[in-house]
């Protein structure tokens, strides 16, 4: 179980609260949607749960333990813009190796062509790069995946392609997911339940 309890966050005591007393639980194999207008702290929830930000108060636990501070984090986050989440001076092969090179079956499921591996990140399109980002996040240690507007920049076909591969993988490996989006039809399609932030 991935648990966020009484999560509150603000950048400093001079700033207003981005998030206050927010509770969330995600079970293994469960897919939870997070829907709400921009500026309501959806992305902050994702960053807190994945350990990118430390909560001002409250706690995040995975199977009862706090998030590890070293090694691979069991909660992985995929952002909207893959080009900002990769080192532009690395080739794709090196980018993938960051999350322990993924299994060939996963690469195939995501339609990642082996010729891409020797390319630089700027040589691939947004849809191609996002598949790389997803493959990188799904390593053997990953127990929970947070998809923050993972396919908002992509066309319908690429969106469905990435989602089908991700859904297959998380079902097989009993991974819990949090899907952050403002596309209600997408959330209805992929999620077991949806949380509305208002």
């Amino acid at each position: 179980m991935l648990k966020g309890e009484q999560l509150s966050f603000r950048y400093s005591p001079h700033h207003s609260w981005v998030l206050q007393d927010f509770n969330i639980q995600i079970a293994p194999s469960e897919i939870v949607g997070l829907l709400g207008p921009s500026g309501f702290g959806k992305t902050t929830v994702g960053k807190l749960l994945a350990g990118y930000l430390a909560p001002t108060s409250g706690s995040v636990t995975v199977e009862g333990q706090p998030l590890p501070t070293r090694g691979s984090c069991p909660v992985q986050l995929v952002f909207q813009h893959p080009e900002l989440a990769m080192n532009p001076r690395w080739r794709i092969r090196q980018v993938l190796a960051e999350g322990q090179s993924p299994a060939p079956e996963l690469l195939q499921a995501l339609s990642i062509d082996s010729s891409w591996l020797s390319r630089w990140t700027h040589e691939l399109s947004g849809g191609e790069l996002q598949r790389i980002a997803v493959a990188r996040s799904l390593n053997a240690h990953t127990r929970y995946l947070i998809a923050d507007e993972m396919t908002a920049m992509l066309d319908a076909n690429t969106q469905a392609l990435i989602w089908q591969a991700v859904l297959d993988y998380v079902r097989q490996h009993e991974i819990g997911m949090l899907v952050i989006s403002h596309e209600a039809p997408l959330l209805k399609r992929v999620c077991d339940r949806i949380i509305h932030i208002e």
Binding site: S111, A156, N157, T158, Q159, A160, L161, Q164, P185, K188
Partner: peptide, 19 residues
């Protein structure tokens, strides 16, 4: 047709492969 089919409110089935 595939693009229309792949919308989440329709069948959500993609065509594999890439451009």
């Amino acid at each position: 047709q595939a693009l229309w089919r792949s919308l989440p409110q329709n069948e959500f089935i993609p065509v594999p492969g890439a451009q």
